[in-house]
Simulated scan of single mutants.
Amino acid sequence: MEPVLSNPTSDRVKKVRALHRRSSRERAGQFLAEGPQSVREVLRFAPGTVDAVYYVRGERSAELVELAAQRGVTTRECTPEVLAQMCEAQHPQPVVAVVRPVSVSLDEALAGDGYVVVLTNVRDPGNAGTVIRGADAAGARCVLISDSSVDIENPKVVRSTVGSLWHLPIHTGSSIEEIFAACRDAGLLLLAADGVGEQLLPDTDLTRPHAWVMGNEAWGLEPEVRDACDEVVRVPIYGHAESLNLAMAATVCMYASAAATQTTD
């Protein structure tokens, strides 16, 4: 049995800590999954991507250490001080996993059935992660994230997906033009979700194969991106709210698609 990691300034701890920086993640080809829920889901759904699990002994980590052993994943016990140094959160979780990227090719992502979610120029980690979580919950085929958007391996994105990052295909790194071309080749209608749309969500036929296109949190979709879509759809506001934020609007649209799909099945 290896000794407990107890030195917060060791090279191993520094390498794990460095994965909070995008440049280090890209160089190492690794990122972090922090907390019991994220670690549990990556061990359940993508154990082959897990390089190591670090944990503090206790009830919340015991189950995960056993699951890691069943999946043949290396584990290492740490002191609370070491794990706190590895993690970015103000109140560190008792377990963190070092994992490899999850992105698949466009063809792989679009190979399934159901509607698709496209994110472009989405910069807020919490919003991106919440949309991925919503897409998982509402049964999307996949999520396609353009190269102008936030890095989905950012620890804040990973935490906000609460494990959904490993539940459905996700593609990153392509331009919005490449994504649109692939969606059209797959026979998908491009529906721009934007507050300037004259077409209302309840009036939109979502039984057709389609992809929702979601834009930046502050300014929405760029005009040229919006114009490249087949329809521009607006979520109606029935009260006095000025607007819905990206994650809220995306969730409403995705559940409308899910309901339409369920109705036609």
Rank of each mutant, 00 (worst) to 15 (best):
residue 47 P to F: 11
residue 47 P to G: 12
residue 20 H to A: 14
residue 28 A to L: 08
residue 98 V to F: 03
residue 110 L to K: 08
residue 158 V to G: 02
residue 66 E to M: 10
residue 109 A to G: 11
residue 85 Q to E: 15
residue 107 D to R: 15
residue 22 R to W: 06
residue 117 V to D: 06
residue 86 M to Y: 06
residue 50 V to L: 05
residue 60 R to M: 10
residue 161 T to I: 09
residue 27 R to F: 11
residue 55 Y to H: 14
residue 53 V to Y: 04
residue 39 V to I: 10
residue 154 N to K: 10
residue 43 L to H: 09
residue 47 P to L: 08
residue 62 A to P: 06
residue 41 E to L: 14
residue 72 G to K: 01
residue 134 G to W: 00
residue 49 T to N: 13
residue 106 L to K: 09
residue 94 P to D: 09
residue 135 A to Y: 03
residue 98 V to E: 05
residue 37 Q to S: 12
residue 73 V to Q: 02
residue 154 N to W: 04
residue 49 T to L: 15
residue 150 V to K: 01
residue 82 V to A: 12
residue 123 R to D: 03
residue 52 A to L: 07
residue 74 T to G: 03
residue 55 Y to E: 05
residue 165 L to K: 09
residue 136 D to A: 11
residue 75 T to V: 15
residue 121 N to A: 14
residue 153 E to C: 00
residue 119 L to A: 14
residue 138 A to L: 14
residue 112 G to Y: 12
residue 127 N to R: 03
residue 101 P to T: 00
residue 72 G to E: 06
residue 95 V to D: 05
residue 108 E to L: 08
residue 36 P to K: 08
residue 86 M to C: 07
residue 107 D to M: 06
residue 43 L to W: 10
residue 43 L to R: 03
residue 82 V to P: 06
residue 105 S to N: 09
residue 52 A to W: 04
residue 52 A to I: 02
residue 86 M to N: 05
residue 32 L to G: 04
residue 86 M to E: 09
residue 59 E to W: 03
residue 28 A to I: 08
residue 42 V to T: 13
residue 46 A to L: 13
residue 61 S to M: 05
residue 151 D to S: 02
residue 163 G to M: 11
residue 87 C to N: 09
residue 139 G to V: 08
residue 69 A to V: 10
residue 63 E to F: 02
residue 46 A to T: 09
residue 67 L to S: 08
residue 133 R to Y: 02
residue 91 H to A: 11
residue 159 R to A: 01
residue 132 I to E: 10
residue 70 Q to A: 13
residue 155 P to D: 03
residue 44 R to E: 14
residue 101 P to E: 06
residue 24 S to G: 03
residue 90 Q to H: 09
residue 97 A to R: 00
residue 155 P to S: 00
residue 53 V to D: 04
residue 92 P to Y: 13
residue 40 R to T: 06
residue 146 S to K: 08
residue 55 Y to K: 04
residue 50 V to T: 04
residue 119 L to E: 12
residue 91 H to N: 02
residue 160 S to I: 00
residue 29 G to M: 12
residue 25 R to L: 04
residue 77 E to I: 05
